[in-house]
Design a protein around this nucleic acid. Structure first.
Length: 282
DNA sequence: AGCTCTTCCTGAAAGC
DNA sequence: TGCTTTCAGGAAGAGC
């Protein structure tokens, strides 16, 4: 599933080919995952792509100069890939693969296409003036947050580490894969209560999250399920997973069998020897 | 505040 | 073989 490293990889691909292009036409298939298809049709068609960036797991396509011709008018197309969303730039003549639901025709004969088997993704039009409302609900970028603030935000909470890492209003961009991999690297059990951690371990976790995300970006993300980047290439970080989807396999550090339990309603993979559970209260 | 359960959706895999 | 059931998962909402 696309999490921060996968979205970052897709965004870097789009940055190489979208800026400067005008959107000549927008077409939709199913629209039940689109916030306001009418608004996208009205405002995106005829606009020019000024840039692409990542905000947590969201892709922000910056648009300028809409069809009504207000020069410098800025707006954004926000896209969340959900579990199976893919964004690809292809020649307009390319055959359409199944479950492709949004088409943005570009002025160079290509198309930006959104494909999403399960339609857990999201797409919406956000005028520049409303962007702050949108981002206000998102937490800090895990690669930008300083250690001090990380300790405050996480360490003040009585929730389980796994739940906090997955909470997009705490940190934005981490999903199940990178939560599990980060906890393994920091040698922390997913069900531990954040507020009970010594500062030392909070710092370990901050560093682990950072290292894991950077390594995953370097390997262009993890291709589990359907993930591919904007050129259709798979990532390679799944080959380096230490716990995620490795239930029953030996831990790379101690050879214990990796376990899978449900924490915060999510599959959580961990090493029972390297990541000791919270101590039972007496 | 934080937990669990449910919903959305499809396809793969397991069960019979 | 072929049909049915179960499960995975990001995010949001309900209810406790």
């Amino acid at each position: 599933m696309p999490e921060l490293p996968e979205v970052e990889t897709v965004v870097r691909g789009l940055q190489a080919s979208l800026p400067g292009r005008a959107v000549t036409e927008v077409r939709f298939g199913k629209t039940d995952f689109v916030d306001d298809a009418g608004a996208i049709e009205e405002h995106v068609q005829g606009s020019r792509i000024a840039g692409v960036e990542r905000m947590g797991k969201f892709i922000r396509v910056k648009l300028s100069g809409n069809r009504l011709g207000e020069p410098g008018h800025l707006a954004n197309l926000m896209i969340h890939l959900g579990m199976t969303g893919q964004l690809k730039v292809v020649p307009a003549a390319e055959p359409v693969v199944a479950h492709t639901h949004v088409f943005f025709a570009l002025d160079d004969g290509r198309e930006l296409r959104y494909t999403d088997i399960r339609r857990f993704g999201r797409m919406g039009f956000v005028p520049e003036g409303e962007l702050e409302d949108f981002t206000g609900e998102l937490g800090k970028e895990p690669l930008e947050i300083r250690a001090e603030e990380f300790c405050e935000r996480i360490g003040s909470r009585r929730a389980r580490l796994k739940a906090l890492l997955l909470d997009q209003s705490v940190l934005r961009g981490i999903g199940n894969i990178y939560a599990d991999e980060s906890l393994f690297r920091a040698k922390l059990h997913p069900a531990r209560i954040a507020a009970n951690l010594p500062r030392r371990k909070l710092l370990d976790l901050h560093r682990a999250v950072r290292e894991i995300l950077l390594e995953a970006i370097r390997h262009r993300g993890s291709s589990v399920s359907d993930y591919v980047d904007s050129d259709g290439n798979r990532g390679e970080f799944q080959l380096r997973h230490r716990v995620y989807q490795r239930e029953g396999k030996p831990c790379h550090r101690c050879k214990s069998k990796i376990r899978r339990i449900i924490v915060a309603g999510r599959s959580s993979h961990y090493c029972p020897h390297c990541q000791l559970p919270p101590r039972k209260k007496r």
